[in-house]
């Protein structure tokens, strides 16, 4: 079976996010007040072939650990299906 996958890569908690901080600082000047906690990540979408959803998730988890994230600074949220 083929499963659609969404991997959201985000900086781990406590890791400084200069992109998020810059966006947050720019918002008031653009007229957007009250926005806080901006964090910038990446969204990666693809299809994966696997016998079932559990197997698909296991494969994607491994893929994230080995390639799509740098575990020193990043985490991933994985959505399958």
């Amino acid at each position: 079976m083929k499963f659609p996958v969404l991997v959201e890569v985000k900086l781990r908690e406590g890791i400084a996010d200069p992109q998020g901080a810059t966006i947050e600082r720019a918002l008031p000047a653009l007229g957007f007040a009250g926005v806080e906690g901006v964090r910038v990540g990446k969204a990666i979408r693809f299809m994966v072939e696997a016998p079932d959803e559990t197997a698909a998730r296991a494969l994607v988890t491994k893929l994230c650990e080995r390639f799509l994230t740098n575990p020193v600074i990043e985490d991933a949220d994985i959505t399958v299906g």
Partner: peptide, 11 residues
């Protein structure tokens, strides 16, 4: 080598 290189502070 351990650790990682992130975007510069100040971008």
């Amino acid at each position: 080598l351990p650790g990682a290189l992130q975007k510069n502070r100040g971008l």
